[in-house]
């Protein structure tokens, strides 16, 4: 049975968005193991739906995805005050220089394949510095 985010050891919800099935699978595994409540999405469109439902504390967002890419997700988040403060770790196979030309509004960039330690450290630091989150939208 799924635990509510409040009953998890650290009570934090992380939304991971990636079209690479293998990435979702291992990130979900490692982050759940560390006690985070993990919600996954396979593209930007799905991510926006999850964003409304689960009010994540942090997002690990891939840039190049089908249907809706990471840049469009960031743009939508920036235009909505409710989501603009959520820390976003943007990931891509591209170099950061190329990523910066395509989008803005992310907290930190990690180039794939990133080191797991670096990702986990970044998550901890961003969560520690993040303001308290707002509650999920009522349906």
């Amino acid at each position: 049975m799924e635990q509510s985010s409040e009953s998890r050891p650290n009570g934090k919800t992380i939304l991971i968005v990636d079209d690479e099935f293998g990435v979702l699978e291992v990130l979900e595994f490692i982050l759940s193991d560390l006690g985070y409540h993990v919600v996954a999405a396979l593209n930007g469109q799905e991510a926006l739906a999850r964003l409304r439902d689960c009010a994540p504390d942090l997002i690990v967002l891939d840039l190049m995805m089908p249907i809706m890419d990471g840049a469009a997700v960031l743009q939508t988040m920036q235009s909505n005050g409710k989501y603009s403060k959520i820390p976003v770790i943007l990931t891509s196979a591209l170099r950061e220089q190329n990523v910066k030309e395509r989008c803005s509004g992310y907290s930190l960039f990690l180039r794939k394949p990133f080191k797991t330690d670096k990702l986990l450290e970044s998550i901890q630091q961003l969560l520690a510095a993040a303001p308290a989150k707002s509650k999920p939208e009522q349906k």
């Binding site: 190049m64 196979a93 591209l94």
Partner: peptide, 21 residues
């Protein structure tokens, strides 16, 4: 080059995480 980077580096990410695990 963008597509090749995507195709080469993306699937290495879960491999690297698995090595860590």
């Amino acid at each position: 080059l963008a597509v090749a980077a995507h195709e080469l580096r993306n699937p290495i990410t879960p491999i690297r995480i698995s090595v860590h695990l």
